[in-house]
């Protein structure tokens, strides 16, 4: 990685931005699935069978992790924009690694519950 970019707050920016973009791509599919439920049981059933495929399950897991990551990194952004910083050069750096870890824990819970 370029030496300008290999530090925590840059990586947090990347994580927040890329997970946000991925969610923007995913959400229309999610609403499509919900929309199918309105159209009748058959269409929804077909979609649900598709959603049981292992690859789709794996993608779902990824999306849950991304959603959690976006949430935790987003909370950090809110904190650093709305509350005073611990020190002038510390944009709540200490929240970044736990935020990423918490997203993985959420992913783990999803694995145990769903798969």
């Amino acid at each position: 990685m370029h030496p300008l970019r290999g530090h925590r707050s840059y990586l947090a920016f990347l994580g927040h931005r890329l997970s946000g973009l991925a969610l923007a791509v995913f959400l229309p599919c999610h609403f499509l699935a919900l929309g199918l439920a309105l159209e009748g049981a058959e269409a929804l059933d077909r979609f649900l069978i598709f959603a049981e495929l292992p690859l789709v399950k794996a993608a779902e897991w990824g999306l849950v992790v991304l959603l959690a990551l976006h949430l935790f990194f987003g909370l950090r952004v809110l904190a650093l924009e709305f509350t005073p910083w611990p020190s002038r050069t510390d944009p709540r750096l200490a929240w970044i690694v736990p935020g990423g870890a918490a997203a993985l824990v959420v992913g783990l819970v999803f694995l145990v519950q769903v798969v």
């Binding site: 300008l4 970019r5 530090h7 707050s9 840059y10 920016f13 931005r17 952004v77 650093l80 924009e81 910083w85 002038r88 050069t89 944009p91």
Partner: peptide, 22 residues
């Protein structure tokens, strides 16, 4: 500003433009 913090990491006189922007 996306709060990447490159400015604050590099400012040679240890200012924090990133905090000013917040």
């Amino acid at each position: 500003c996306h709060s990447q913090g490159n400015c604050t990491r590099h400012c040679p006189v240890e200012l924090s433009p990133s905090e000013s922007i917040a």
